[in-house]
């Protein structure tokens, strides 16, 4: 596959210090957890329940950071901050699409890693 990798496992590998099982376990956990969180965000946006959006994206943050998805670093923080402060709420759907599109690609890349 020629496409550019959207994730970077350096951090995780640094923590694992050679234990490939641990890396695999965390990648699987990420693949298991994240889709449900994405759904929560989507549902929250639909219901305009910004507290729910904030809390779901907040939960997603540590794992996405750890998986080294740098493209999403700011996106996640923008969603969280907008939802938390009720500002620029109209930008949230757009940001969400970037988030979910990128994550779908990340999932795909991680499964074929």
């Amino acid at each position: 596959m020629g496409e550019e990798k959207l994730y970077n496992l350096n951090q995780l590998e640094a923590i694992a210090s050679g234990n490939e099982d641990f890396v695999r376990k965390m990648v699987n956990l990420f693949l298991e957890m994240t889709p449900a969180l994405l759904e929560r965000i989507a549902a929250g946006i639909q219901l305009q329940d910004w507290t729910e959006v904030k809390s779901a994206v907040h939960k997603m943050k540590p794992s996405v950071d750890m998986m080294g998805v740098t493209d999403l670093y700011q996106v996640i923080r923008d969603i969280e901050n907008n939802a938390k402060t009720y500002t620029n709420l109209e930008q949230i759907p757009e940001l969400y699409f970037t988030l979910s599109d990128t994550l779908e690609q990340v999932f795909e890349q991680l499964r074929n890693r």
């Binding site: 234990n19 965390m26 990420f30 540590p62 794992s63």
Partner: peptide, 12 residues
């Protein structure tokens, strides 16, 4: 309650 974070913490 964040499973990912607690896994990492436990491992480390």
């Amino acid at each position: 309650d964040d499973e990912f974070y607690s896994e990492v913490l436990e491992y480390r």
